[in-house]
């Protein structure tokens, strides 16, 4: 019975989310009809691919109850490194492998420092991010890298299509599907959640909690590298500020999704990042100046976290008389 209830509640949350996305889409379409145009929807899909990959990486870290503020720095360093590899004439796959290897090392540095050496997560990742942000300047001193970009075929990641959808969207869907399977259908995924819920209990259940925390940071860095790869593919060059705009949407996507869906998960992040990308692209289409975008994302994030917080729910139910009736109603419905 309670399982059934849980299913109902889960389904209701998903439906609520779908309604929210459709509602936001409808509002934008009414204000700005171009929102539903082919170009605009394509743009949303492309931006969602980059934002979504970064947010997915952050999801792993948030599931083990940590934070990662090195996303922008790692993205910048990986962008310039992959750019340098491409400019040196290496084939695209080698450049991507190089970027991923670099990401894995950087993620492992943060992850090991935080899990095995118990350094505080926020400040450690800020420091690692800062070092990476500086290292991004090593190759060219800050100048843009664009040599060999068109010959290498990296722009195909942005332009090519498969069954009517952009390649970047397929990459996003494939990575999300794999992540969803691992996180909700395997022991490994359960271990991540257990580590986050109660590391001591997880430890005594035979889970190598430190390894999973470190692994979460490695996965986050790998996803960040993939995200910035798509940004390079879209712009056709590598610059040190690529990826500077990945972090806020990632945080907003993860925490908004978690707030609406009642917990951090791959599906929740997918919904959250879809909503955030729609809002960002919609506002950009309406001609809202660039400097408002961070503020809008922040406001939505804050609003979402407040609206779905436990204390607000307690406060509303604490208002008194409403509670018994509301409770009875929900019982009847179930």
């Amino acid at each position: 019975m309670s399982r059934l209830n849980d299913h109902f509640r889960g389904a209701a949350r998903v439906l609520g989310f779908v309604a929210l996305v459709l509602g936001v889409g409808a509002v934008f379409a009414l204000i700005e009809p171009r929102f539903l145009s082919h170009a605009s929807l394509n743009g949303i899909a492309r931006h969602m691919a980059a934002n979504g990959l970064a947010a997915l990486g952050l999801t792993f870290v948030v599931i083990v109850r940590k934070f990662d503020l090195s996303i922008a720095g790692i993205a910048a360093f990986a962008a310039m490194s992959m750019g340098a590899l491409i400019a040196a004439g290496l084939p695209l796959w080698a450049a991507i492998m190089g970027g991923l290897a670099l990401g894995a090392v950087l993620g492992a540095v943060s992850g090991i420092a935080i899990s095995y050496f118990e350094l505080p997560d926020i400040v450690t990742t800020i420091a690692v991010g800062s070092i990476c942000g500086g290292l991004a300047f090593l190759y060219t001193g800050g100048r843009s890298i664009f040599q060999n970009f068109f010959q290498s075929g990296i722009t195909d990641l942005n332009d090519a299509r498969l069954l009517g959808l952009g390649v970047s969207l397929w990459i996003l869907l494939a990575v999300y599907a794999a992540a969803w399977f691992v996180m909700s259908r395997t022991r490994t995924g359960m271990a991540f959640y257990a580590t986050g819920e109660n590391p001591i209990a997880a430890h005594f259940s035979g889970i190598a909690t430190r390894r999973f925390v470190a692994l979460a940071y490695v996965l986050c860095a790998l996803c960040t590298v993939l995200a910035v790869l798509l940004i390079l593919a879209e712009s056709g060059n590598a610059e040190t500020n690529k990826g500077a705009n990945l972090m806020m949407p990632a945080y907003a996507g993860v925490f908004l999704g978690a707030a609406v869906m009642g917990g951090t998960s791959v599906v929740a992040t997918f919904g959250g990042i879809l909503l955030i990308t729609m809002l960002l692209d919609g506002f950009a289409l309406m001609g809202v100046p660039y400097y408002y975008s961070d503020g809008v994302v922040s406001l939505i994030l804050l609003g979402g976290v407040i609206a779905f917080s436990d204390s607000l729910r307690e406060w509303i139910t604490g208002l008194g008389l409403l509670r018994p009736r509301a409770a009875r109603k929900s019982e009847n419905r179930a």
């Binding site: 945080y251 100046p289 400097y291 408002y292 503020g295 809008v296 922040s298 976290v305 607000l312």
Partner: peptide, 27 residues
């Protein structure tokens, strides 16, 4: 009072402050 995570709260207010600051001078 609401016991929200400090990082999420202050990251959001930071974004809002930065936006208002830029908006005051139109960038």
């Amino acid at each position: 009072a609401m016991r929200l995570p400090a990082l999420i709260v202050t990251i959001s207010t930071a974004g809002i402050c930065a936006s208002i600051a830029a908006a005051l001078g139109k960038g």
